[in-house]
Write a protein that binds this DNA or RNA. Structure first.
Lengths: 241, 241
DNA sequence: GCCGATTTGTCCGTATGTATC
DNA sequence: CGATACATACGGACAAATCGG
């Protein structure tokens, strides 16, 4: 599927870094060397390297080379970053996930909801509340709002499995951009009833909007996480000033 | 400081989007149009647009155009509850920020610290603990570890003001890449003693590494935030598969 | 359904500037 | 100073997706 050449090179180099072929702190082969190795143009190599830089894998040093700054991480039970769904990250780590539907309804966006979600007033949306159980323990409360016109035919049955799989495979829609905000809030009555919070009196809240390949915002999400199972990773590269 | 052309175009377009010249949901002028407007090559335009995409300002749609997905802050959904970052509320309200040094020492990295921070065993580092007060209220506990060889001459006096200003202006070092992980943890004894946590029994923890322009990791940070004053924003773009 | 115009996506080659050693 | 390596910029070519006629 990765038919773009720069993407193949990107993944090839990424794997080489992860397996230690290029060690932390060392310099990558020069661009000209890579051009010969991969038989491509300089632009293509630079694009692959730019991708690695965005992932926090390498950092270019003007006039010197491209330094590897990737270090293996073995911390949290599972990492949660980018646009990876709960299902995806869980299955990647071989955990069993069960989803329970708490609420499934169609509502019309009012002033209040519009301000919170970013959807225009008057739009019809699905409002879905779900509890995610990891190995039996209820750990995440997901509140999703989907634009009905963009995600037609949603049913509780689908929501119980994976909505993202339905959207991507059945509807053929591609998820492209997601904006998220992370905060920490007091656990509400509902949180305490539905989740197993242990001794925590608060939880990690991830709020965000998701855009499809048409640039249409079709989802607003609020995920409320039991703190023990929450970890968010981010890499930032500073531009020139 | 000679500016790059793509960066000027990037900033020009960004400002145009922020001021509403290009409205949310609409399509940007085509690349060919922008080429004429800015008198440059297509690559340069595409690079500027790629920057806007990375900021979550626009999203390109193959064969159609580039859609604006930026929403002004006061209309975006994330303004709920008056949650602002420490920096934001401090500067916006002209609040007074005071930094108190809790600890300032030079230590040698042992096995334990190496695993946590990513610094090699045996390196000499500054270990600095500081409490940030906003209008007198202690809200953030900052634990910094700086590589001594990379940041020589650090003193408690400097730490009380701004270490970053010292690093950038005095040492002429540029900060390029930073990797961060966000978790939620129980408040420790120390947290409760030093911070004003209100009713919270946990806090937001931002751990991270910072790399300079030589690709050397010179800082490991752990910031422990009172939940009310913590908010983290992120934009992610899904890779092709 | 087809075709052509438009628009973005990928790739290549070249030239020049700038930083490091 | 020269060699090497990354940074910026330009121009051209073709592919792929969208849309209107």
């Amino acid at each position: 599927m990765p038919k773009a050449k720069y993407d193949e090179i990107y993944m090839s180099l990424k794997r080489a870094i992860e397996t230690g072929t290029y060690a932390y702190g060392s310099l990558m082969p020069s661009e000209n060397t890579l051009i010969v190795q991969y038989d491509c143009s300089r632009n293509t190599i630079r694009r692959a390297l730019a991708g690695l830089g965005g992932d926090g894998y390498v950092q270019p040093i003007h006039g010197k080379g491209v330094r590897v700054i990737y270090q293996p991480v073995d911390r949290a039970p599972f990492a949660f970053g980018g646009i990876e769904s709960f299902q995806e990250s869980a299955s990647r780590n071989n955990f069993q996930v069960v989803t329970e539907i708490i609420q499934f309804s169609v509502v019309t966006v009012d002033e209040q909801l519009a301000k919170e979600s970013g959807f225009p007033v008057g739009e019809e949306v699905y409002s879905i509340h779900r509890v995610r159980r990891l190995n039996g323990k209820p750990l995440i409360l997901d509140k999703n709002i989907f634009l009905k016109s963009a995600v037609p035919g949603l049913t509780p049955d689908i929501a119980e499995r994976s909505i993202y799989a339905y959207i991507e495979k059945e509807l053929g829609m591609q998820i492209v951009t997601s904006k998220r905000t992370i905060t920490v809030e007091y656990a509400s009555e509902q949180d305490q009833q539905l989740l197993e919070l242990g001794g925590y009196n608060c939880l990690a809240v991830v709020s965000g909007q998701t855009f499809n390949s048409d640039g249409i915002m079709f989802e607003y999400t609020q995920s409320r996480h039991q703190p023990d199972y929450f970890s968010f990773h981010s890499t930032a590269t500073r531009k020139k000033m």
